[in-house]
Simulated scan of single mutants.
Amino acid sequence: MSEPATLYIVPTPIGNLEDISPRALDTLASVAWIAAEDTRHSARLLQHFSISTRTLSLHEHNEDKRAAMLCHRLLSGDDVALISDAGTPLISDPGFVLVRRCREEGIPVIALPGPCAAITALSASGLPTDRFIFEGFLPVKSQARSNMLSSLAERTCTSVFYEAPRRIVDTVRDMQRVLKERQIVVAKEISKAFETYISGTPQEVGDWLEAEAVRQKGEFVVMVSPAVVDVSAIPPEAMTLLTTLSEHLPLKKAAAVVATHYNLKKNALYQAGLDLKSGLA
């Protein structure tokens, strides 16, 4: 029996076609098949770079069936590349079922580095990047979305979301109601001609979006600043113990020990420790 071929995870541009890497182009041209989220959409990219590799669709409605078929082809010796409509596959896009099955079947999986809207937006947002949580898309229904946003009240790291143009205003207005004056940053049309970053309170950002209908069009990344930790609310003896322990333990572990000892919130202590290290407290 022949050795299995390789599944390549290939990021594609999120706007500017020049962002695709030479390695990605070489891979797309050399594999036997390209599994694309939407073959019609991907055809424009492939035609632009004169790539004639055969394509087939792989999306949320057919991934189970396609995963079985592609694993059979891979086991038979055909290299396969997985792409999404834009950015890095599997990041709020299909592909997990296929990759998991390949791993189970012993098929090599190689991921190429490349464009990702969440990371690109975060790096230019001006919000803390040392710790962040990517949440994908927020719930569609307002109540579920509000419940999700409520969980950010005490989160001490930056939160990153994707949002669709038809829901962007509703989402930001929900943030205004739930998160009040927390700072947010909305990035739209990253790497495209009308790339825009708008930051402020949810009310300020919502007002900006509603001022002109065209501002509500495009692809959006929404980022929420960390909760501000009131270090003065942490007992001095707890801070002293945290400082001492963090000289001998990782900060996260030290914060957990102090939180248990003084019945405090671990995230608040962790953030306070970060602030101490950076000279902010």
Rank of each mutant, 00 (worst) to 15 (best):
V31M: 11
E60P: 04
S225V: 00
R166I: 12
L82R: 00
S2Y: 11
S150F: 01
V31K: 10
P89V: 00
K180Y: 13
G95L: 03
T201N: 12
F194K: 00
A5E: 12
P165A: 03
N263C: 06
T244S: 14
S92E: 05
S84Q: 01
V224M: 08
T260W: 11
D79K: 07
S50D: 15
V10Q: 03
V80R: 04
A238F: 13
N16M: 10
E3N: 11
K265W: 06
L90W: 11
V214M: 13
R131G: 10
D85F: 01
A187C: 14
P202V: 02
D207R: 08
C116Y: 08
H248T: 09
L249V: 01
V99A: 09
L17H: 04
V169H: 11
R155N: 04
V10M: 12
L264R: 06
D26T: 08
K217D: 15
M175G: 00
R173T: 04
S159K: 06
S52V: 06
H48I: 00
A213Y: 10
Y262H: 10
P128H: 04
P94D: 05
L149V: 05
Q183I: 07
A153Y: 02
R103V: 12
I20M: 09
Q47A: 13
R177W: 14
V10G: 03
S246G: 02
L56H: 02
A32D: 13
H61M: 02
R23H: 05
E247C: 13
C157E: 09
M175P: 02
P115D: 13
A227N: 04
R173M: 13
L280W: 06
C116M: 15
N263L: 14
L82G: 00
V186Y: 00
A144W: 10
R177D: 09
T53R: 06
G200Y: 03
S199Y: 00
E37D: 08
T201R: 11
S123W: 08
H61L: 08
V99L: 15
L82W: 07
A117N: 04
H248M: 10
A86Q: 11
E60G: 14
